[in-house]
Amino acid sequence: MSQTRSTAAARMDEPGRKPFPIVKALVFTLLGILLVTQLYPLLWLLIYSLKTNDEILSGKFFALPKSMQWNNYKQAIDAHYWQYLFNSVYVTLVTLVSVIVLASMVAYAITRFKWKLAPIVMLVFLIGMMVPVQATLLPIMLIFKHFHIGDHRLTGTRWSIILPYIAYQTPIAVFILSGFMRTIPREIEESAHMDGANVYCTFRSIILPISVPPIMTVCILTFINIWNEYILAATFISAEKFKTLPFGVNSFISQYSSNYGAIGAYLVLGALPVIVLYFLLSEKITKGMVAGAVKG
């Protein structure tokens, strides 16, 4: 019996390791088609951004530009590109640092301190994860107007978008960080306590350094969400000098709607920072986004 089993197993092994070549070819064709549909539009955009208006309108979408129109890029960069980029970096960095500091403090308090309200605080954050963000746009604007954070014409300061950004990102951050901190062994804190470290010291020099992996996950999630955020920025900000990159790209495009090459160039420039980052850190970014999704 065992004899026949093992030979049967050996026979079953063959097709497992070497599937029929036709099946394999079909699978790779399918994967290849998907690759083209997912990436070709971006490649097309790159080519588009280097063409003249005439070439774009000629209808030969596949043709390469006769000469590279770098001028499109010059026009785009001259239209406040560096300003928008700086604003995006500034807003994203402030949000990132605030989210990490604030959320890790809450996560620490929820998981390690003994107090009755801890589960309720956690629940408050969990419920918040289900609230659709755009439902808060109007009331936040009305509240800000009331407290004069920003003025009547919606010309907000950077803080008018940074504060909501922090608030939106904290629930998921608290959730991920507290999930991790729950697993840190008590003995570590205990020995720190014996050495005379107080809570603040333990938190800063022991808990935070151990929590670097989940903090990275939070960083990636927050970065992608905030860097790409459009509607809140477009609603709360109108001054040119405060516009973030997505909002800036969009207003450039609505302003120069018939300068096709420059629009393409601005889109490429808008995508570039994230694409470069993704090229360098793709594994970290995909892992972080999946971890965020699965734990959220």
Binding site: V106, T136, T170
Partner: peptide, 21 residues
């Protein structure tokens, strides 16, 4: 000290707006 900064900001910008709405 650990909880309130975050919780207040969060409640003020997510829950208060919803109730205000």
């Amino acid at each position: 000290l650990f909880v309130l900064p975050c919780l207040l900001l969060y409640v003020c910008l997510v829950f208060v707006p919803i109730f205000f709405s």
